[in-house]
């Protein structure tokens, strides 16, 4: 039994952040990642007759992200360095676990954690993700060296990841039990 168009669209929407992330790891270019995401959307709708159910669709999307991402990366430049297939196997294994609506759930938690950022950390996030600055441009706007900026930004991301984990646990009620 094939999945219907509505389910495909709904699942593409639900998985969009995970898909974009998977593709971006491969192509390392956000604009290109969006293009590939669109290609996968087209393909999913076109081939939905060959997809049996939601679980099949999620698996299919993961494989499509890998295939279309690699193709786009190769087409982008023959100098583009590709990950060893084992790296992508690890990611695909994580993908297939299909943790429930992770992006949507952590959206609220992430929003809370972002709201707790102050000062320089907040500025870095704004410069990088609201204004889209990277590399030297980001360093110049932040008034620091590129190395310093990436070290600081890495700390912010790590702190955000830990904060999101705490928030999700708090939402599940598991954190209170552990204290």
């Amino acid at each position: 039994m094939a999945v219907n168009e509505e389910l495909v669209v709904r699942e593409l929407w639900r998985q969009r952040i995970r898909l974009l992330a998977y593709i971006e790891v491969i192509v390392r270019d956000r604009d290109l990642a969006e293009d590939v995401f669109q290609e996968i959307g087209v393909a999913a709708l076109t081939k939905r007759d060959q997809i049996n159910d939601r679980e099949h669709l999620v698996r299919w999307l993961g494989q499509a992200a890998r295939y279309h991402g690699l193709t786009a990366a190769r087409n982008r430049s023959r100098h583009h360095r590709l990950f060893d297939s084992r790296v992508l196997d690890h990611i695909e294994a994580m993908w297939q676990r299909d943790e429930p609506a992770a992006a949507d759930v952590s959206g609220a938690a992430l929003e809370t954690c972002l709201g707790q950022l102050t000062g320089y950390n907040r500025k870095l996030i704004e410069l990088r993700y609201r204004q889209g600055l990277t590399g030297s441009a980001l360093a110049e706007a932040a008034g620091r060296s590129k190395n310093t900026v990436y070290v600081a930004l890495a700390r912010v991301h790590k702190a955000l990841a830990e904060c999101v984990t705490r928030e999700l646990r708090r939402a599940d009620g598991s954190e209170g039990a552990s204290r």
Partner: peptide, 28 residues
Amino acid sequence: DRQASEDPAKAELLFTLAAQRWAISELL
């Protein structure tokens, strides 16, 4: 590449960090 091949946690970090970045962009 070598480290991520051998350590699934490092491979998965690439994925989770990328997802976090997309989510931040969307929220902002």
